[in-house]
Simulated assay, not measured.
Amino acid sequence: MHRAGATIHVEPRAFDLLCHLVTHRDRVVSKNELLDSVWGDRFVSEAALTTALRTVRRALGDTGGRQGMIRTVHRRGYQFVAAGTTVGAAPPARSEPARTAAPFGTDHQVIRFCKAGDGARIAYASVGTGPPLMKAANWMSHLDLEWTTPVWSHWISGLARNRTLVRYDERGCGLSDWEVPSCTFDDWVDDLETVVEASGLDRFPLLGVSQGGAVAVAYAARHPARVSRLILAGAYARGRQVRARDAAERNEADLDLDVARVGWSHQDPRFLRVFASQFLPEGTPRDWEEFVDFQRRTTSPANGVRFLEEFARIDVSAIAHQVRCPTLILHSRDDARVPTSQAGELAALIPDSRLVMLDSRNHLLTATEPAWAEFLSHIDAFLNG
């Protein structure tokens, strides 16, 4: 193909995809139709479609954010929207039976994979029916194991109630690739962008939990037209090393990180138990054991150290004011992991925000505490408002 007089080389599948979109530019083309038209009877995941679409957009000088050539239509598909004149016939579309997506509710999820710009494979999943809610990845996620652990199972069922919850495993974690070129905060934001595009979402509410809150803030600041509402739970704008106010706090933060490095590297059971208790101070010894077991199966010791080091350096305080959507900030009043001062800082930085304090000491709310029902009630009211 040619653009601005220059020859652009595009792989055949991507070119077929472009031809189909141009040929049917008078309507929105569904993902299933594109899969059937371009790949025929060869079974591929939606990640292949996403990759081909990204290739086409790059060749056209378009992006998922700009969408001047190809527009993503939420929950429906894609449409070629640029003005143009057809000067030749497009290849005939293959006549194949249309694919039917399997219905699913809150007891069943569909897991797919997509690739980040640096080649890292990212696993993402959809569960539930109704309007979408995108959840940014956070520490210790595993799309499959989350269904059976008491740490996260109630989060999935609660958040997917009357809506479609889309979540993913961050790089180095869960079902996503553990061996990745890099694992920085910018990589995490880029991965969220990749999953949004792969999911075909146009405009949607976004949830960020713990350090996933900072990722969500950065994404919302980058893409104000995409995020309709922002929910931050147990989140913070600045990591512990960044927010240290004096030498004593810096030394304390450095010591905390050194202990975490040793504990995670050697999988010291005493450290992991204490670490678990910081997330669930009101939990039982059984809860802590479940938490420790989930961590061990979720990522490698080396990656656990990488995550903790990066968490300490997080800082979105300079861009939080760029968030333009209504924002709900939920935080446990006596959070033992992230101090309430961080919730207050986020509320002060984000213009259209509201802070709600929950009566709990847990960083991750449990299914049995009253604060959990209150948490869901606030989210429902905010998203339905």
Rank of each mutant, 00 (worst) to 15 (best):
I8F: 06
A14F: 11
L17N: 01
V44Y: 05
A47D: 15
T51E: 11
V56S: 02
G61E: 04
Q67R: 10
I70H: 00
Q79K: 08
V81D: 02
T85C: 07
P92Y: 06
E96C: 12
P97N: 10
P97G: 14
A102I: 15
Q109C: 09
V110S: 08
I111W: 02
F113Q: 07
C114E: 10
A116H: 01
G119P: 04
I122P: 00
A123S: 06
Y124L: 01
P132W: 09
L133V: 09
H142Q: 02
H142S: 08
E146P: 03
W147D: 09
P150W: 05
V151H: 01
V151S: 04
S153T: 15
H154C: 05
W155A: 04
N162D: 15
R167I: 11
D177P: 00
P181E: 06
P181C: 06
S182Q: 09
T184W: 02
T184S: 13
D190L: 11
D191W: 07
E193N: 05
V209H: 06
V215I: 15
P224Y: 05
L230C: 00
A233R: 00
G234W: 00
A235P: 10
Y236S: 05
A237F: 12
R238C: 14
G239F: 09
Q241G: 07
A247P: 04
L257V: 12
R261S: 06
W264D: 04
S265Y: 04
P269N: 03
R273F: 15
Q278R: 13
P281M: 08
F291C: 13
V292W: 01
F294M: 10
F294H: 11
Q295F: 14
T298Q: 02
P301Y: 06
V305N: 00
R306N: 04
L308C: 10
L308Q: 14
V316M: 05
V316G: 03
S317E: 13
A318V: 14
Q322Y: 01
R324C: 10
I329W: 05
A336H: 11
R337P: 02
T340P: 00
R354W: 06
V356T: 08
M357K: 04
L358A: 03
N362K: 04
A367E: 15
W372K: 03
F375G: 01
D380K: 04
L383F: 12
